[in-house]
Amino acid sequence: MASITKAPQKSWTNVTSDAELVKHLLELYFCWEYPTLASLSKEHFRQDFSSGSSRYCSPLLVNALLALGSRFSDRPEPRTDPDDPFTAGDAFFEEAKRLFWEQTDHQDLTAVQAIGIMSIREASCGRDIDSRYYAGQSVRLAIEMGLHRLDDDGTGDDHRTVQLITLWGAFSLDHAWSLTTGGLPQFSRFPRFPSKIHVNSELEETSWAPYTDDGPDPRPEAQQPCHIRSVFNCFCELKIYHKYLHWYENIPDALRLGLNF
């Protein structure tokens, strides 16, 4: 599993100056949450995070990711109360909210991605109403930006790929909430759907291993292919409730309950 190996060119958060902690929390996110609902491109994010570019990285997105990554850590540093694990990531989340409301133009890829991450973080805290709200905001922004009118033209254009990942990440999250609650999704029908993300065989075989506060699991038997695009495209098919059973019948064995790590 590739990781952030060099210090970023600039600080992306005002909550902490601990670069090691930031790197650690991002690794936790990319290990445990990203493979399920990948609402951003890890490769493009990491490149811009390290270089200081704001095209695919932003303080809003970084703080949202750190807030969610904190949920996978038992370390006291990400907590506002060191003795209360339920406060893990709260400071990062408050900073993300502040940055979002200070931003005058929300029609930005990193904003759409960040709001989706904030939705997942609130769900992990048991705040379903807030989570559903953020999920709705994310997919509505994606539609306002016209991302649903895009398509994969087969050229492998990086920006087009990130746009499609952003759209499908927001769309899948909204429909996952629809399935969970039995409510209607924000958008249940489009004139047409854009294509799914191209499955890159080299990326599919990238190694995944458990990562915890103790670091990556070094055991060879803990390594497995990530299948990141296949999993992502599978969740993109989770469109509306009445298609759920058909969807479940056709998912890979690795995703079936009780068979995954």
Rank of each mutant, 00 (worst) to 15 (best):
A7E: 14
S11Y: 03
N14C: 06
V15S: 11
T16F: 15
D18M: 10
L21H: 05
K23C: 01
L25R: 03
L26D: 06
L28F: 09
Y29P: 09
C31A: 12
W32L: 05
S39C: 15
L40K: 01
S41N: 13
K42F: 13
E43N: 06
Q47P: 04
F49A: 10
G52R: 14
G52W: 09
C57K: 09
L65P: 11
A67L: 02
L68P: 04
G69T: 04
G69W: 04
R71D: 09
R75P: 00
P76Q: 06
E77Y: 05
E77C: 06
P78L: 04
P82R: 13
D84F: 10
F86V: 04
G89V: 02
A91C: 08
A96E: 08
K97W: 09
L99Q: 15
Q103P: 08
T104E: 15
Q107A: 11
D108P: 02
A111G: 02
A114V: 02
G116D: 14
M118W: 09
S119H: 10
R121D: 15
R121N: 15
R121I: 06
E122W: 01
C125Q: 12
R127C: 01
R127V: 07
S131T: 07
Q137E: 15
S138R: 10
R140M: 14
I143Y: 13
M145Y: 14
L147S: 07
L147F: 08
D151P: 00
D153S: 00
G154K: 08
T155G: 00
H159C: 03
V162N: 05
L164R: 00
L167C: 04
L167S: 03
F171Y: 13
D174C: 07
S178P: 04
G182N: 13
G183H: 14
L184N: 14
S188G: 15
F190G: 06
F193Y: 13
F193H: 08
K196I: 05
H198K: 07
E202D: 10
E202Y: 07
L203G: 04
L203E: 06
E204R: 02
D213P: 07
G215V: 11
Q223A: 04
I228K: 04
S230W: 01
V231Q: 03
C236N: 09
I240V: 13
I240A: 07
K243D: 14
L245E: 15
H246P: 00
W247V: 07
Y248H: 11
E249A: 14
I251L: 10
D253M: 06
R256W: 06
L257D: 05
G258A: 08
G258R: 11
G258Q: 12
N260V: 01
